[in-house]
């Protein structure tokens, strides 16, 4: 069991999405499951949402799981109305997420 985690900063948008994307892909390649900690993130732009989806597709292609943790209410709302939420497993806290991962493994 090798759980990779990546922590987002305050924003995920076109100014830092490439950086986040590269780092995430790197982690995905080395991990069995990946947790994206969004607790501090309060804004995700169109470009940012696409990083999340790309990470999801990459993990799925590798047969591993991607979990999102601590998605702020406003970000969650944008993800809901644009249909992105349906692609992800979302947990409120790191602890909840780890419990869920343990339960499935």
């Amino acid at each position: 069991m090798n759980i990779g985690t990546y922590t987002l900063g305050a924003r995920l948008d076109s100014l830092n999405y490439l950086e986040a994307q590269d780092a995430l892909i790197d982690i995905i390649e080395k991990s069995s499951d990946v947790v994206l900690d969004m607790t501090d993130c309060h804004y995700v732009s169109s470009a940012g949402l696409r990083v999340l989806l790309l990470a999801k597709k990459t993990t799925a292609a590798q047969g591993i799981k991607l979990y999102l943790v601590g998605v702020n209410a406003e970000v969650k709302d944008v993800m809901d109305v644009t249909g992105f939420t349906s692609f992800f497993d979302i947990y409120e806290t790191m602890e909840d997420c780890m419990k869920a991962i343990e339960a499935t493994s």
């Binding site: 732009s45 944008v78 249909g83």
Partner: peptide, 20 residues
Amino acid sequence: YASSGRFSMQVDELKNLIKC
């Protein structure tokens, strides 16, 4: 007409409506 219009995500929101 998009609740996400303030983030300029109306394209995705409309596409999601049609998909749903």
